[in-house]
Nucleic acid binder design. Structure first.
Lengths: 380, 380
DNA sequence: TTGAAAGCGCTAACAT
DNA sequence: ATGTTAGCGCTTTCAA
């Protein structure tokens, strides 16, 4: 695998030369035209004589000229750049959103800057400042929490359109794309109740986070509707992280037998993984000893373990719709030839999540067969 | 959950007013100083009289002034922006890399633009052009394939430093951060051979992709070293995607009994998931009927299913090291007060992956218990 | 310590 | 169809 460089045209690295940009002037000189003509070839090719155009295009190619977008942006006041600020880039939910945003943006000639606030309002603030400095045209943001308001107000003040993803914030006049956290939470809880569970624990994230609050609400409402008493010791707050789930599960397992839950509702995918880990470590069998359901999908895991019931959200769609909202504000022509200055009122879209119950009789038999044979010939 | 807006200071949306930028001039006027003074307050606060500075700072705050980075960049020729172009943002491997890059960049005052080439050289080309237009200072790229060369040559020509991540490309004079795909592949294959397997299938990605080529090589070399005959029908090429894995597994299952593999080596995490799905669908028990190992980690899944042996790569480190390489080229001062113009030769780092065998006797017993009880009381 | 002038690379608005 | 002028918002000289 030793690769001798047999290539002849390998360019040399000239780190020493002053990295002078190839400008439009250079191209103009090379093609014996004015800078304006080059500019026109770039922006309105039809308005340049074919012969001239060809000459200019060749010069561009020969010089490897790539127009400086900064200069254009400075002049036009538009950067054709969007930004997506999420609270956890490691979460597949946000990754999917990113795909959706990137897709729509790319198709419309926009570039996307991704940022990761790590659930920290401070980091979020830093990012926003950098992004505003870069004069992004619009922002999609999954706010770290209610502490994000001041920054959002600044955006409003500056007139930079933005879209709230996944988490709404009270009183912020912006488009919102969220999931039905209360409804999804209700369905998940009802699913458990329908299976006969009464002592259902909720392993939740930070109650400051809107989604966590709503998931808790759906859980509580459903218990109440079914006349099941809410038990404080079965509700554990934390953060949307694996270790938080592990800790919560341990705490639940430490309860006296009579109080221990028969089912655990993990309010988030990471929490669920943590919970499952802790349960296995404690030799607790899912779902025999304790059942587990979770809000958010764990796509890959679910493919490997059919015993996980999840509430899956159409994450990618969060991104595409959010990006479309933004683009409609940026280019009114896109919003279906709308009125001239019809300032669209903030929109709010609630995307319904989907309950995915993968377990089936067949799967169970499969699992049974699997483990029975397991001890005979381990081969992994 | 109906949120009446009780807030009084909610700013109105003024989409109609011309969104005139607050400029340095505005601040200067407000503070009764020249633009230069404001500029200095921003860049070299120490060189401004405290009294003046305070006045300026207040004006900045009052006007909500955020300096236009575009103008500064245009002037200075440096954007303090890096770009990360990966081939699949949905892959946790690249997500982890992104975290690493973002981390280092942020800490050094750089912004990162993420791009997703979707394994398409054409999309990659479009992105690169947009990025060059934006005058990024440096690029980290997991090239889509050997077809990426022309673009990389352009980067070399322009003198924009870049780092190749995960995939090296012959004859491109740039820093490289890759994993030991051959070595990792060998270990994985040896693991299977050690367990007694002889008919080991390889479910691989596109042979055009360097990592796929290397993983194949490690597999082949190991078979040869152990005197095991390579069987063409057991080597299936495809792409690094779940459905490709599913298809490959089906194909393998369709082989006559005598030829069917006893173990499958999935060359990538997504392929592995597809393979596992297909096997379960066919009532094939892992690892009794067929063992499965895979290159790349499937972190979450592994937490749920201990029967998966994987070759995990330190993805995040790929990102941090890559970003550091870039920054060292951009700001020589970072590279340990190196010589003035010591043009560092291209560096090549090979990060060793780690074999993770999670299955244990305890886990097996756990699984056994689990399924035995399963049919009695399903509760998920 | 502060200011005036010039210009980064590009394009809108006028010429021609 | 092509060219000229001016200036986007900022910072680098050079002066005061």
């Amino acid at each position: 695998m030793l690769n001798l460089n047999l290539d002849c045209d390998t360019h040399n690295i000239r780190m020493d030369e002053t990295p002078t940009d190839v400008t439009i002037q250079d191209v103009a000189a090379r093609a014996s035209v004015s800078a304006m003509t080059v500019s026109r070839v770039l922006n309105q090719p039809a308005r340049v004589a074919p012969a001239t155009r060809q000459r200019v295009e060749q010069a561009i190619r020969e010089l490897g000229f790539v127009p400086n977008a900064l200069a254009r942006q400075l002049l036009r006041g538009r950067t054709h750049t969007l930004a997506l600020l999420v609270s956890d880039i490691g979460n597949p939910f946000f990754t999917q959103i990113a795909r959706g945003v990137e897709d729509v943006a790319q198709r419309n000639g926009y570039t996307v800057i991704f940022g990761n606030s790590d659930e920290s309002v401070e980091k979020e603030r830093q990012y926003l400042h950098a992004l505003l400095g870069r004069r992004i045209d619009g922002l999609l943001i999954a706010p770290a929490g209610n502490g994000s308001r001041p920054m959002l107000d600044l955006l409003v003040q500056r007139g930079t359109p933005f879209v709230l993803l996944d988490r709404a914030i009270d009183g912020v006049p912006a488009d919102v794309v969220i999931g039905d956290n209360i409804g999804g939470s209700r369905k998940l809880t009802e699913h458990l109740i329908g299976l006969g569970h009464r002592r259902i624990a909720l392993v939740n994230g930070d109650p400051e986070v809107p989604t966590a609050r709503d998931r808790r609400r759906g859980y509580l409402d459903t218990l109440r509707d079914h006349g099941i008493e809410m038990r404080p010791e079965l509700i554990i707050d934390g953060v949307y992280r694996r270790d938080s789930g592990t800790r919560a599960a341990r705490q639940l397992l430490a309860l006296p037998d009579a109080q221990r839950p028969t089912a655990i509702f993990a309010a988030n995918n990471f929490l669920a993984v943590g919970v499952i880990e802790a349960l296995r470590a404690a030799q607790v069998i899912i779902p025999r000893d304790i059942a587990v359901v979770c809000f958010d999908d764990i796509e890959i895991a679910a493919a490997l373990d059919p015993f996980l019931t999840v509430m899956a959200q159409p994450a990618r769609t969060f991104g595409t719709i959010g990006a479309q909202f933004l683009l409609e504000r940026l280019e009114p022509s896109l919003s279906g030839a709308a009125g001239p200055r019809a300032a669209v009122a903030p929109r709010r879209v609630v995307l319904p999540p989907e309950l995915i119950v993968r377990v089936s009789c067949g799967a169970q038999l499969d699992m049974a067969r699997r483990s029975v044979e397991l001890l005979e010939q381990p081969g992994n």
